[in-house]
Nucleic acid binder design. Structure first.
Lengths: 189, 189
DNA sequence: CGCCGAGTTGAACTGAATCAAGAAACGTGG
DNA sequence: CCACGTTTCTTGATTCAGTTCAACTCGGCG
Protein backbone atom coordinates (compact mmCIF):
# COMPACT_ATOMS: atom_id res chain seq x y z
CA UNK A 1 0.00 0.00 0.00
CA UNK A 2 1.49 3.27 -1.13
CA UNK A 3 0.43 5.15 1.96
CA UNK A 4 2.69 3.29 4.26
CA UNK A 5 5.59 4.55 2.23
CA UNK A 6 4.62 8.17 2.49
CA UNK A 7 7.18 9.10 5.06
CA UNK A 8 9.81 6.53 4.29
CA UNK A 9 12.58 9.05 3.82
CA UNK A 10 12.34 10.35 7.30
CA UNK A 11 12.00 7.00 8.98
CA UNK A 12 8.62 8.10 10.04
CA UNK A 13 6.02 5.65 8.88
CA UNK A 14 6.83 3.17 11.61
CA UNK A 15 5.94 5.77 14.20
CA UNK A 16 2.62 6.75 12.68
CA UNK A 17 -0.77 5.25 13.43
CA UNK A 18 -2.87 3.76 10.65
CA UNK A 19 -5.79 6.08 11.26
CA UNK A 20 -3.58 9.10 10.80
CA UNK A 21 -2.34 7.79 7.49
CA UNK A 22 -5.90 7.16 6.37
CA UNK A 23 -7.03 10.64 7.32
CA UNK A 24 -4.03 12.29 5.71
CA UNK A 25 -4.45 10.26 2.57
CA UNK A 26 -7.98 11.52 2.19
CA UNK A 27 -6.67 15.06 2.10
CA UNK A 28 -3.88 14.42 -0.33
CA UNK A 29 -4.04 14.90 -4.03
CA UNK A 30 -1.78 13.32 -6.61
CA UNK A 31 -0.29 14.85 -9.70
CA UNK A 32 2.13 14.13 -12.46
CA UNK A 33 4.27 17.09 -13.42
CA UNK A 34 7.03 17.59 -15.95
CA UNK A 35 10.69 18.34 -15.45
CA UNK A 36 11.42 22.01 -14.71
CA UNK A 37 7.95 22.58 -13.30
CA UNK A 38 7.95 25.19 -10.53
CA UNK A 39 6.21 23.94 -7.39
CA UNK A 40 6.75 27.11 -5.45
CA UNK A 41 8.14 30.61 -6.07
CA UNK A 42 9.99 32.80 -3.60
CA UNK A 43 8.18 35.79 -2.15
CA UNK A 44 4.92 33.88 -1.79
CA UNK A 45 3.52 31.92 1.11
CA UNK A 46 3.82 28.21 0.56
CA UNK A 47 0.59 26.36 1.20
CA UNK A 48 1.68 22.91 0.13
CA UNK A 49 3.54 20.06 1.64
CA UNK A 50 4.75 17.76 -1.13
CA UNK A 51 5.65 14.10 -1.13
CA UNK A 52 7.65 12.94 -4.11
CA UNK A 53 6.73 9.44 -5.28
CA UNK A 54 8.94 9.21 -8.34
CA UNK A 55 11.20 11.87 -9.74
CA UNK A 56 13.18 14.60 -8.07
CA UNK A 57 12.72 18.12 -6.72
CA UNK A 58 14.94 20.70 -5.14
CA UNK A 59 14.46 23.79 -2.99
CA UNK A 60 16.82 26.66 -3.69
CA UNK A 61 17.25 30.34 -3.15
CA UNK A 62 19.42 33.14 -4.40
CA UNK A 63 22.27 34.47 -2.32
CA UNK A 64 24.20 37.38 -3.84
CA UNK A 65 22.86 36.37 -7.22
CA UNK A 66 24.02 32.78 -6.82
CA UNK A 67 21.64 29.85 -6.97
CA UNK A 68 21.96 27.85 -3.75
CA UNK A 69 20.33 24.46 -3.30
CA UNK A 70 18.97 23.98 0.21
CA UNK A 71 17.27 20.63 -0.14
CA UNK A 72 16.85 17.71 -2.51
CA UNK A 73 13.81 15.46 -2.42
CA UNK A 74 14.12 12.11 -4.14
CA UNK A 75 11.59 9.28 -4.25
CA UNK A 76 9.51 8.99 -1.09
CA UNK A 77 10.92 12.18 0.31
CA UNK A 78 9.09 15.30 1.37
CA UNK A 79 9.63 18.90 0.38
CA UNK A 80 8.08 22.25 1.09
CA UNK A 81 9.23 25.83 1.55
CA UNK A 82 9.71 25.00 5.18
CA UNK A 83 10.29 28.56 6.40
CA UNK A 84 7.04 29.69 4.87
CA UNK A 85 5.03 26.59 5.62
CA UNK A 86 5.90 26.81 9.30
CA UNK A 87 5.88 30.54 9.82
CA UNK A 88 3.12 31.45 7.37
CA UNK A 89 5.16 34.21 5.80
CA UNK A 90 6.70 34.85 2.41
CA UNK A 91 9.31 32.30 1.50
CA UNK A 92 12.78 32.91 0.23
CA UNK A 93 12.81 29.51 -1.43
CA UNK A 94 11.89 28.31 -4.86
CA UNK A 95 11.03 24.68 -5.47
CA UNK A 96 11.45 23.14 -8.89
CA UNK A 97 11.32 19.69 -10.40
CA UNK A 98 14.51 18.30 -11.84
CA UNK A 99 12.80 15.36 -13.49
CA UNK A 100 9.33 14.37 -14.60
CA UNK A 101 7.72 13.65 -11.26
CA UNK A 102 4.68 12.12 -9.65
CA UNK A 103 3.86 13.58 -6.30
CA UNK A 104 1.14 14.08 -3.74
CA UNK A 105 0.49 17.17 -1.76
CA UNK A 106 -1.55 18.36 1.15
CA UNK A 107 -2.80 21.91 1.52
CA UNK A 108 -1.74 23.79 4.67
CA UNK A 109 -5.27 24.72 5.69
CA UNK A 110 -6.42 21.12 5.35
CA UNK A 111 -3.53 19.91 7.46
CA UNK A 112 -4.15 22.60 10.04
CA UNK A 113 -7.82 21.71 10.18
CA UNK A 114 -7.00 18.05 10.61
CA UNK A 115 -4.63 18.85 13.47
CA UNK A 116 -7.22 21.14 15.05
CA UNK A 117 -9.95 18.53 14.72
CA UNK A 118 -7.81 15.68 15.98
CA UNK A 119 -5.23 17.18 18.29
CA UNK A 120 -3.72 13.80 19.05
CA UNK A 121 -2.32 13.88 15.52
CA UNK A 122 -0.12 16.78 16.58
CA UNK A 123 2.18 14.12 17.89
CA UNK A 124 3.10 13.13 14.35
CA UNK A 125 3.83 16.69 13.36
CA UNK A 126 6.08 16.86 16.38
CA UNK A 127 7.87 13.65 15.44
CA UNK A 128 8.33 14.87 11.89
CA UNK A 129 9.94 18.05 13.18
CA UNK A 130 12.11 16.10 15.58
CA UNK A 131 13.39 14.08 12.68
CA UNK A 132 14.19 16.99 10.43
CA UNK A 133 15.77 18.78 13.36
CA UNK A 134 18.17 15.92 13.95
CA UNK A 135 18.95 15.89 10.23
CA UNK A 136 19.72 19.55 10.05
CA UNK A 137 21.82 19.44 13.22
CA UNK A 138 23.93 16.80 11.51
CA UNK A 139 24.41 19.13 8.59
CA UNK A 140 25.78 21.82 10.86
CA UNK A 141 28.39 19.48 12.22
CA UNK A 142 29.20 18.50 8.68
CA UNK A 143 29.83 22.08 7.68
CA UNK A 144 31.89 22.77 10.77
CA UNK A 145 34.17 19.77 10.69
CA UNK A 146 34.29 18.07 7.36
CA UNK A 147 36.28 19.14 4.33
CA UNK A 148 34.69 19.66 0.95
CA UNK A 149 35.87 16.22 -0.07
CA UNK A 150 34.34 14.54 2.97
CA UNK A 151 31.04 16.35 2.55
CA UNK A 152 30.88 15.26 -1.06
CA UNK A 153 31.65 11.66 -0.13
CA UNK A 154 28.94 11.66 2.53
CA UNK A 155 26.35 13.09 0.19
CA UNK A 156 27.06 10.54 -2.49
CA UNK A 157 26.95 7.77 0.05
CA UNK A 158 23.58 8.96 1.28
CA UNK A 159 22.11 9.60 -2.17
CA UNK A 160 24.13 7.59 -4.67
CA UNK A 161 21.78 8.36 -7.52
CA UNK A 162 22.05 12.10 -7.16
CA UNK A 163 25.30 12.33 -9.08
CA UNK A 164 23.70 10.95 -12.22
CA UNK A 165 20.56 12.99 -11.89
CA UNK A 166 21.60 16.46 -10.84
CA UNK A 167 23.89 19.21 -12.16
CA UNK A 168 27.19 19.46 -10.36
CA UNK A 169 26.46 23.10 -9.65
CA UNK A 170 23.44 22.14 -7.57
CA UNK A 171 25.39 19.53 -5.66
CA UNK A 172 28.24 21.94 -5.06
CA UNK A 173 26.01 24.65 -3.62
CA UNK A 174 24.23 22.08 -1.47
CA UNK A 175 27.47 21.10 0.24
CA UNK A 176 28.67 24.68 0.38
CA UNK A 177 31.47 24.74 -2.17
CA UNK A 178 32.00 26.11 -5.66
CA UNK A 179 31.44 24.08 -8.75
CA UNK A 180 35.14 24.32 -9.63
CA UNK A 181 36.17 22.82 -6.33
CA UNK A 182 33.68 20.00 -6.75
CA UNK A 183 35.02 19.32 -10.21
CA UNK A 184 38.54 19.05 -8.84
CA UNK A 185 37.43 16.77 -6.03
CA UNK A 186 35.77 14.47 -8.51
CA UNK A 187 38.71 14.30 -10.86
CA UNK A 188 41.24 13.38 -8.23
CA UNK A 189 39.80 9.98 -7.47
CA UNK B 1 4.44 35.82 37.15
CA UNK B 2 7.51 33.79 36.41
CA UNK B 3 5.68 31.17 34.41
CA UNK B 4 4.77 33.43 31.60
CA UNK B 5 8.45 34.04 31.06
CA UNK B 6 9.34 30.40 30.81
CA UNK B 7 9.70 30.31 27.08
CA UNK B 8 10.59 33.90 26.44
CA UNK B 9 13.77 33.12 24.55
CA UNK B 10 11.99 31.27 21.83
CA UNK B 11 9.15 33.72 21.42
CA UNK B 12 6.92 30.98 22.55
CA UNK B 13 4.92 32.07 25.56
CA UNK B 14 2.53 34.14 23.48
CA UNK B 15 1.55 31.00 21.60
CA UNK B 16 0.94 28.87 24.66
CA UNK B 17 -2.32 28.46 26.54
CA UNK B 18 -2.53 29.27 30.22
CA UNK B 19 -3.65 25.77 31.18
CA UNK B 20 -0.59 24.28 29.55
CA UNK B 21 1.67 26.60 31.51
CA UNK B 22 -0.12 25.69 34.72
CA UNK B 23 0.20 21.97 34.08
CA UNK B 24 3.83 22.21 33.08
CA UNK B 25 4.62 24.36 36.08
CA UNK B 26 3.28 21.69 38.38
CA UNK B 27 5.77 19.24 36.94
CA UNK B 28 8.74 21.55 37.11
CA UNK B 29 11.20 21.74 39.91
CA UNK B 30 13.50 24.62 40.70
CA UNK B 31 17.10 24.54 41.81
CA UNK B 32 20.03 26.80 42.48
CA UNK B 33 23.32 25.39 41.33
CA UNK B 34 26.88 26.69 41.40
CA UNK B 35 29.17 27.65 38.54
CA UNK B 36 30.86 24.67 36.88
CA UNK B 37 28.09 22.30 37.90
CA UNK B 38 27.54 19.53 35.36
CA UNK B 39 23.90 19.24 34.33
CA UNK B 40 24.48 16.37 31.94
CA UNK B 41 27.35 14.09 30.91
CA UNK B 42 27.95 12.61 27.48
CA UNK B 43 27.28 8.91 27.02
CA UNK B 44 24.15 8.99 29.13
CA UNK B 45 20.53 9.53 28.20
CA UNK B 46 19.35 12.98 29.09
CA UNK B 47 16.07 12.98 30.99
CA UNK B 48 15.84 16.66 31.72
CA UNK B 49 14.72 19.73 29.92
CA UNK B 50 16.15 22.79 31.65
CA UNK B 51 15.03 26.38 31.73
CA UNK B 52 17.61 28.85 32.91
CA UNK B 53 16.16 31.67 35.01
CA UNK B 54 19.35 33.45 35.95
CA UNK B 55 22.88 32.45 35.09
CA UNK B 56 24.33 30.68 32.10
CA UNK B 57 24.82 27.18 30.74
CA UNK B 58 26.41 25.68 27.68
CA UNK B 59 26.17 22.39 25.82
CA UNK B 60 29.41 21.12 24.33
CA UNK B 61 31.05 18.01 23.00
CA UNK B 62 34.47 16.82 22.05
CA UNK B 63 35.53 16.59 18.44
CA UNK B 64 39.04 15.24 17.84
CA UNK B 65 39.87 16.11 21.42
CA UNK B 66 38.69 19.69 21.02
CA UNK B 67 35.95 21.17 23.17
CA UNK B 68 33.18 22.46 20.90
CA UNK B 69 30.32 24.57 22.21
CA UNK B 70 27.03 23.72 20.51
CA UNK B 71 24.64 25.91 22.45
CA UNK B 72 24.54 28.67 25.02
CA UNK B 73 21.55 29.21 27.28
CA UNK B 74 21.27 32.57 29.00
CA UNK B 75 18.46 33.88 31.18
CA UNK B 76 15.02 32.59 30.16
CA UNK B 77 16.51 30.22 27.65
CA UNK B 78 16.14 26.48 27.46
CA UNK B 79 18.76 23.79 27.22
CA UNK B 80 18.92 20.02 27.06
CA UNK B 81 20.99 17.36 25.34
CA UNK B 82 18.62 17.66 22.44
CA UNK B 83 19.85 14.62 20.52
CA UNK B 84 19.31 12.40 23.51
CA UNK B 85 16.16 14.02 24.81
CA UNK B 86 14.47 13.57 21.45
CA UNK B 87 15.85 10.24 20.39
CA UNK B 88 16.11 8.60 23.80
CA UNK B 89 19.64 7.43 23.22
CA UNK B 90 23.03 8.21 24.68
CA UNK B 91 24.06 11.78 24.17
CA UNK B 92 27.30 13.11 22.82
CA UNK B 93 26.81 16.37 24.65
CA UNK B 94 27.83 17.62 28.04
CA UNK B 95 26.02 20.47 29.70
CA UNK B 96 27.73 22.63 32.28
CA UNK B 97 27.01 25.83 34.11
CA UNK B 98 29.26 28.79 33.42
CA UNK B 99 27.87 30.85 36.29
CA UNK B 100 25.94 30.31 39.49
CA UNK B 101 22.51 29.57 38.11
CA UNK B 102 18.89 29.21 39.13
CA UNK B 103 16.94 26.95 36.85
CA UNK B 104 13.87 24.79 36.55
CA UNK B 105 13.63 21.43 34.92
CA UNK B 106 11.08 18.94 33.81
CA UNK B 107 11.70 15.20 33.67
CA UNK B 108 11.24 13.49 30.31
CA UNK B 109 8.83 10.86 31.61
CA UNK B 110 6.67 13.52 33.24
CA UNK B 111 6.56 15.52 30.06
CA UNK B 112 5.78 12.43 28.02
CA UNK B 113 3.00 11.48 30.41
CA UNK B 114 1.56 14.96 30.22
CA UNK B 115 1.57 14.84 26.44
CA UNK B 116 0.02 11.38 26.47
CA UNK B 117 -2.67 12.45 28.93
CA UNK B 118 -3.45 15.68 27.14
CA UNK B 119 -2.62 15.17 23.48
CA UNK B 120 -3.73 18.66 22.59
CA UNK B 121 -0.58 19.86 24.35
CA UNK B 122 1.44 18.19 21.61
CA UNK B 123 0.81 21.34 19.66
CA UNK B 124 3.18 23.24 21.92
CA UNK B 125 5.91 20.68 21.55
CA UNK B 126 5.45 21.04 17.83
CA UNK B 127 5.68 24.81 17.98
CA UNK B 128 8.77 24.60 20.14
CA UNK B 129 10.43 22.37 17.56
CA UNK B 130 9.35 24.63 14.74
CA UNK B 131 11.04 27.50 16.47
CA UNK B 132 14.31 25.75 17.15
CA UNK B 133 14.27 24.39 13.62
CA UNK B 134 14.07 27.88 12.17
CA UNK B 135 16.89 28.94 14.49
CA UNK B 136 19.18 26.14 13.46
CA UNK B 137 18.43 26.64 9.78
CA UNK B 138 19.60 30.22 10.20
CA UNK B 139 22.83 28.96 11.68
CA UNK B 140 23.48 26.82 8.63
CA UNK B 141 23.15 29.80 6.36
CA UNK B 142 25.47 31.67 8.66
CA UNK B 143 28.13 29.02 8.35
CA UNK B 144 27.74 28.80 4.61
CA UNK B 145 27.84 32.47 3.75
CA UNK B 146 29.23 34.61 6.48
CA UNK B 147 32.87 35.16 7.30
CA UNK B 148 34.28 34.59 10.74
CA UNK B 149 34.08 38.31 11.37
CA UNK B 150 30.44 38.50 10.38
CA UNK B 151 29.49 35.49 12.47
CA UNK B 152 31.18 37.03 15.47
CA UNK B 153 29.40 40.34 14.94
CA UNK B 154 26.04 38.62 14.67
CA UNK B 155 26.58 36.60 17.81
CA UNK B 156 27.55 39.64 19.83
CA UNK B 157 24.59 41.52 18.50
CA UNK B 158 22.27 38.70 19.48
CA UNK B 159 23.83 38.08 22.90
CA UNK B 160 25.72 41.22 23.86
CA UNK B 161 26.42 39.99 27.35
CA UNK B 162 28.10 36.79 26.21
CA UNK B 163 31.43 38.46 25.58
CA UNK B 164 31.78 39.50 29.20
CA UNK B 165 30.57 36.21 30.57
CA UNK B 166 32.19 33.48 28.49
CA UNK B 167 35.72 32.42 27.55
CA UNK B 168 36.76 33.39 24.06
CA UNK B 169 37.53 29.75 23.35
CA UNK B 170 33.90 28.80 23.85
CA UNK B 171 32.68 31.61 21.66
CA UNK B 172 35.19 30.73 18.97
CA UNK B 173 34.14 27.09 18.81
CA UNK B 174 30.48 28.11 18.80
CA UNK B 175 30.96 30.14 15.63
CA UNK B 176 33.27 27.54 14.13
CA UNK B 177 36.64 29.23 14.24
CA UNK B 178 39.82 28.94 16.29
CA UNK B 179 40.50 31.04 19.31
CA UNK B 180 43.44 32.67 17.56
CA UNK B 181 41.28 33.84 14.69
CA UNK B 182 38.72 35.23 17.10
CA UNK B 183 41.44 37.07 18.94
CA UNK B 184 42.62 38.67 15.72
CA UNK B 185 39.09 39.64 14.73
CA UNK B 186 38.59 41.33 18.06
CA UNK B 187 41.85 43.25 17.96
CA UNK B 188 41.29 44.73 14.52
CA UNK B 189 38.37 46.90 15.52
C1' DC C 1 56.73 35.30 44.22
C1' DG C 2 55.85 32.14 40.78
C1' DC C 3 52.46 29.61 38.54
C1' DC C 4 48.47 28.93 35.54
C1' DG C 5 44.74 29.69 32.56
C1' DA C 6 43.26 32.97 29.20
C1' DG C 7 44.29 35.85 25.58
C1' DT C 8 47.44 37.77 22.02
C1' DT C 9 50.70 37.93 18.31
C1' DG C 10 53.73 36.18 14.56
C1' DA C 11 55.10 33.24 10.60
C1' DA C 12 54.28 29.61 7.65
C1' DC C 13 50.95 26.85 5.53
C1' DT C 14 46.64 25.22 3.24
C1' DG C 15 41.97 24.40 1.49
C1' DA C 16 39.00 26.52 -1.14
C1' DA C 17 37.47 30.80 -3.78
C1' DT C 18 37.98 33.53 -7.67
C1' DC C 19 38.81 34.67 -12.31
C1' DA C 20 39.56 33.18 -16.80
C1' DA C 21 39.64 30.19 -20.60
C1' DG C 22 38.59 25.86 -22.92
C1' DA C 23 36.27 21.36 -23.71
C1' DA C 24 32.34 18.51 -23.63
C1' DA C 25 27.46 17.62 -23.66
C1' DC C 26 23.02 18.89 -24.74
C1' DG C 27 18.81 20.30 -27.22
C1' DT C 28 16.53 22.79 -30.65
C1' DG C 29 15.47 24.20 -35.21
C1' DG C 30 16.36 23.68 -39.80
C1' DC D 1 20.39 13.94 -38.41
C1' DC D 2 23.45 17.54 -38.48
C1' DA D 3 24.94 22.34 -37.04
C1' DC D 4 25.05 25.79 -33.81
C1' DG D 5 24.37 28.01 -29.62
C1' DT D 6 23.86 27.38 -24.80
C1' DT D 7 24.65 25.26 -20.69
C1' DT D 8 27.60 22.31 -17.98
C1' DC D 9 32.00 20.74 -16.70
C1' DT D 10 37.02 20.94 -16.41
C1' DT D 11 41.52 22.90 -15.84
C1' DG D 12 45.00 26.44 -14.65
C1' DA D 13 46.90 30.44 -12.10
C1' DT D 14 46.35 33.38 -8.45
C1' DT D 15 44.63 35.02 -4.12
C1' DC D 16 42.84 34.87 0.47
C1' DA D 17 40.62 33.64 4.85
C1' DG D 18 41.46 30.97 8.33
C1' DT D 19 44.44 27.15 10.53
C1' DT D 20 48.37 25.57 12.82
C1' DC D 21 52.13 25.78 15.75
C1' DA D 22 54.82 28.27 18.71
C1' DA D 23 56.15 31.85 21.65
C1' DC D 24 54.90 35.49 24.46
C1' DT D 25 51.90 38.70 27.70
C1' DC D 26 48.78 39.56 31.15
C1' DG D 27 46.03 39.20 35.33
C1' DG D 28 44.77 36.80 39.07
C1' DC D 29 45.60 33.78 43.06
C1' DG D 30 47.65 30.17 46.01
Amino acid sequence: MANTLIFKDIDFSDQVSADFLVDVSKLMKSQELPNKHILHSEGTICNYFFIIHTGLARAYYFKDGKDITAHFAIENSTITAIDSFIQRKKSRYNIELLEDTTLSYIVYDDLKKLLDDKPHYEKYARIFLENIYIDIAERIEDLLFHSAKERYAKLIQKFPSLLQRVNLGHIASYIGITQETLSRIRSEK
